[in-house]
Design a protein around this nucleic acid. Sequence first.
RNA 1: GCACCCAUAGUUCAAUGGAUAGAACAACGGCCUCCGGAGCCGUCGAUCUGGGUUCGACUCCCGGUGGGUGCACCA
Length: 585
Amino acid sequence: MDLPFDLITELERVLGRSAAAAGLPEDFSPDLRPADPRFGDIQANGVLAAAKAARANPREWAARLVEVLRADPEVAGRYEVSVAGPGFINFALTPEALLGWLRGFGSEEELSRAAGDLYRGRTWVVDFASPNTAKQMHVGHLRSIVVGESLCRILAFCGAAVIRDNHLGDWGTPYGKLFYAYRRFLDPERLKADPLEELERLYRLADEKSKQDPEVMEEARRELVRLQSGDPESLKLWEEVNRLSIEALEEIYQALDVRFDHYLGESFYRDKVEPVCEELTRLGLAEESRGALVVFHPEHPRFATQPFIIRKSDGASNYATTDLATMVYRVENLKADGIVIVTDSRQSDHFEQLWLTTRKWFEKTGRPLPEFQHVVFGTILGEDGKAIKTRTGDPIKLKALLAEAVERARQVVREKNPELPADEVEAIAAAVGLGALKYADLSQNRTSDYTFSWDKLLSFDGNTAPYLLYAVTRIRSIFRKAGVDETALDVGAATPPETEAERALARKLANLAPVVRQTVTSLRPHVLCTYLYELSGVFSSFYNADRVMVEAPEVRARRLLLCQRTLLVLEAGLHLLGLKTLRRM
RNA sequence: GCACCCAUAGUUCAAUGGAUAGAACAACGGCCUCCGGAGCCGUCGAUCUGGGUUCGACUCCCGGUGGGUGCACCA
């Protein structure tokens, strides 16, 4: 029995024609969703609202609809259909249908091909990470990197052509100060040892000096002017700083298994901002205010008076200008149908103004309007409930955080599994430590702040990476022990799920599609995390209740199939989150 | 002052307007002739407050209270 990947989308079509046949209104919306397992696999709630609107009896409508549905070839044999409560319609997959679905998708490629119906043919630009050059990354950069990478993978899984863009802060006023100090106080040894550390030291030095000494401030300003006016020597230095910065950033990205297609930072747009101001002025969207060029949005409660400044009173552009130029570039050159920008929630005002402005601007100029999503996230809090800091009050360096994650994981692995060879311990420690760090971030609704706790994120209990990674290794262990190659399973030998634990597991697996759909449309990876955690739980219960390696060949075959598909979905899901999975740990 | 976000068990978190609000930690009690006990099963325990909309509200609307964030030339 061939079943579609996304059962709900399929069933929606069936309900469309069935509703008409049952005499329900033209515009009937079935309102399908995954059901509480107590009631079935899928539930339709739409009858309640529709009947209410028509002042009809919902139970009677539901009964009529069910009668038509039961006769439908795409329903009969696949679902047990029933009416419950005030007019809910419940669909429970038959064991044969569950088996059919399980057989259908046997690899990550097959899953992705099926999920690819969602965004196929569409191009999405994902703008994430976006640190400043000449500075070390700290904890504050972690969420954008982790969430952004995961969203890229999920969008690609769903068929989109994804362009990963790191919109570096690589231009602007800090360079004046940095160059001032670079020319006077550079320590070449330190630069060699840790470029970002040294560049950061130089910047801080200049920043302090400039606060005390107006002469220094003036010199820094001259440095900036030299750079911005294209002085070759300044540009050379700028390029050098950039090169060192990107190299250092990439070291960390590599450790985190994150990559970019472009590093189109602010500097890339510096010759593209003039037309922005011209166009917006010509179109009457921008106006002069207090010497600056700004955009107001009269229809908005706040942006009617809070300006979006696109040219400062000194004539220079700012990040509003470059961001507007960036919107154009992404639509016209990168052909983006969708744009995702991943930053913390403090920049919400800016991006709301950016989008309001872009919409009006693009409409007036006939440019295609992309889908725009500002993906915001909250702050990482320490256990004191305040933004996480070191004891001395400085931000925690990202490099140090990653190292600590790996070190802590290493200790646990050594303790739990002392006989593993050293190099494997390292690989496991990296996968577990960095995975735990990422997962802690992803598993929580990104819009809220989250409380950071090493104990919690490295725990083997609860919704954590170690628990999920463990579930993966345990399944692999079954295949190892049984001497069965999990990639070459005889799926034809399996019989439909029978025991309660088997059925629960099969149903959970078959619910993957709506979870992926919800994750990608809401751009919230925690939806996927919750599902994977629940799946692991259901698997563990199954594993505890039903022995896999039994004598009866058909029972064994179907349990091996369940194991293999669970392994597949778990690994595929963890990979979408940016985690590496393990064979043993 | 204006705007945005948040408020759910003792704690950390879930719950696209649907049926009895789910987990984990902590506490307590079970399961070791069993494929990895890093596990499984169970008990106890919560929607900040007052209105409203709805057949149905943790969810939507209005008013409070308590926290976070942002608001003219940094990004």
